[in-house]
Each structure stands twice: as structure tokens, then as C-alpha cells.
């Protein structure tokens, strides 16, 4: 064996060769104490659940598990915390990078001489939740949110900009995204300063 690869070998005993040896092994395994330990754990947990109200089961859909930040569920569109204006600048990078071609947007020149996103949609019938759009977004405007339930009476229910956008009255609850495309904790170190002598 290679010295670098230090495997631990399990001692499983020899393979029973004769029918008698096989029979002996079955009897040995069946009546060993581990079986009863297992049964005890089950009974204990059953009592806890039934009489003490301690359960490991999440009562979905009344209860939901917290999901990790890197989980890729239905997209959220974030707002700027200061002004409440949506962050999307309409650069079209998400539309470009989308490998299943499910993002479409319309932009226009608005009254304030800015680029305005007049329409935005994601076709969730096609989306494969790869996370590229969130990763490419330069403004952290499109991110993956926590809504993983993608069943609806109508396909269109999720897909419009307004559906994904943080409601303005819940702006305070908007959390900064920590998943794909979010700045790394050491991002500040990588930024080169430009001279601003004037």
C-alpha cells in the first residue's frame, strides 16, 4: 500500500463458507444487543413527540426549514436601501448570460435621461436555476431568494418584475444577499484605489 494513502481497513471477519457458518452469522446478528438499542431510541423519541411535544419533524407547509444562503430558489429583485429605487439598471447581462434563454427585458430612455427597465420577465418554465444571472449582475439587483415553492395555478405568477421586487413597505426587511455573485468578505482588499488628487 502506498504510504501516503493511509486507509483504515475494516475487520469484517471472513466470509462464511459453509451453510452452517452462514446460519451461525444470522443468529448472531439477530440477537445482538444493538437491535434493542435501536428499538429503545425509537420508543424514546415516540414518547417525546407524543407526550412531551418535542419533535424533529417540520410541519410543512405550516413550518419551513431555513435555507442556506447559497440555495438557488426563485429570484428576488432587490431595491436600493437608501432611495428605495430598484437596483436593476437594465444592462441586459442576465439576459445575455442566461443559458436557457428565459430572461427577457425591455428598456427605454426615460424622462430623467436614465435607462429605465419598462418590462422584465423570467420564464420559470424554462429556468434551470443555475444562478448565472445572480452571479453576473453588477448591481446585485437580481439574486436568488428563498421561495423554493414553484407550484402555482398559473405559470406567470412569479415571472414579472413586480412579483420579484421587494415590496416597498418591506424594504427594511430586505436582506443583503450572501449567495452567488455576492462580494466576498475580503472584497475590499482587492479594490485598487484610483488617484483622486483634485
Amino acid at each position: 500500500m502506498n504510504e501516503k494513502q493511509k486507509y483504515i481497513m475494516l475487520d469484517l471477519g471472513g466470509t462464511p463458507l459453509t451453510p452452517w457458518c452462514r446460519f451461525k452469522r444470522v443468529v448472531k446478528r439477530t440477537f445482538r444487543i444493538e437491535l434493542f438499542i435501536g428499538l429503545w431510541v425509537t420508543i424514546r423519541e415516540m414518547f417525546k413527540t407524543l407526550f412531551m411535544g418535542k419533535s424533529h419533524t417540520t410541519k410543512y407547509p405550516f413550518e419551513k426549514m431555513p435555507i442556506p444562503p447559497r440555495y438557488r430558489a426563485i429570484h428576488d429583485m432587490l431595491r436600493l436601501l437608501e432611495s428605495g429605487h430598484y437596483r436593476c439598471i437594465g444592462c441586459g447581462l442576465c439576459e445575455k448570460i442566461c443559458i436557457s434563454n428565459c430572461i427577457a427585458m425591455e428598456t427605454r430612455y426615460d424622462e430623467n435621461q436614465r435607462k429605465e427597465v419598462s418590462e422584465y420577465t423570467i420564464n420559470f418554465g424554462r429556468c434551470i436555476f443555475c444562478g448565472y444571472c445572480a452571479e453576473v449582475c453588477p448591481e446585485l439587483a437580481i439574486v436568488h431568494g428563498a421561495r423554493y415553492e414553484t407550484a402555482s395555478e398559473q405559470r406567470a405568477s412569479f415571472s414579472l418584475f413586480e412579483d420579484m421586487l421587494t415590496p416597498i413597505d418591506r424594504l427594511k426587511e430586505q436582506e443583503e444577499f450572501a449567495g452567488y455573485g455576492a462580494p466576498t468578505p475580503w472584497a475590499d482588499k482587492n479594490i485598487k484605489k484610483t488617484p483622486l488628487a483634485y
Partner: peptide, 9 residues
């Protein structure tokens, strides 16, 4: 044309 489309689209 201002702000209606990106070149690559």
C-alpha cells in the same frame, strides 16, 4: 435607439 437595446442582443 437610446437605451432600447444592447449591441449583442
Amino acid at each position: 435607439f437610446v437605451y432600447t437595446s444592447n449591441a449583442w442582443e
